[in-house]
Amino acid sequence: MDCILQPWPWYVSGPLITTVMLLLIYFGKTFGMSSNLRTLCSIGGAGKYADFFRFDWKAQRWNLTVVLGAIIGGFIAVFFLSDQTPIDLNPQTVTDLSELGFKQVGQTLLPPEIYSWDTVLSVKGMAILIIAGFLVGFGTRYAGGCTSGHAITGLSNLQLPSLIAVIGFFIGGLVMTHFLLPLIF
């Protein structure tokens, strides 16, 4: 039981993610979490404004069900399958983040410096979450997929477009992490 409660190593987690992808393929679908954002737009009536949202969103109910499951899975993992082990980060990562003003690095999944309500309810904190979310939502649809659709499914299917997208993910991520985060924090 201990090895379930402790964090799982990469060589267990990676193959389990493959299992998720292959199960969805076996069920006749494809693994792609960002498509749900488009579905949410359609349900909200975005079809009135752009043809991109005029599609049969009911055919996507299976994917919304995966989302519901993912929410439940997150709940189960944190409240029943965790022993609150801090994240075993590289000490250099902890030092780098301390220099940016982050405290108690790795004690929780997310930094309170970004996600605590105290931060979120400040103008800067709210702006960070809105800008970050907007970039993710815009970028993923422009690129036609996210980490699940391109990095996992697309690369597994040896798709060159997915490789280009993943290279793009990394260019953006490196610029944010190395140049922009030090300016923001």
Binding site: S34, A143, T147, I167, G168, G173, M176
Partner: peptide
């Protein structure tokens, strides 16, 4: 793929979450 990917990457590294982990 390149432009969309870069925009996505900027948001991913800032939020620390992509569309699956968000939920």
């Amino acid at each position: 793929y390149l432009f969309g990917g870069i925009i996505f990457g900027l948001g991913w590294a800032l939020a620390g979450a992509c569309p699956g982990p968000m939920y």
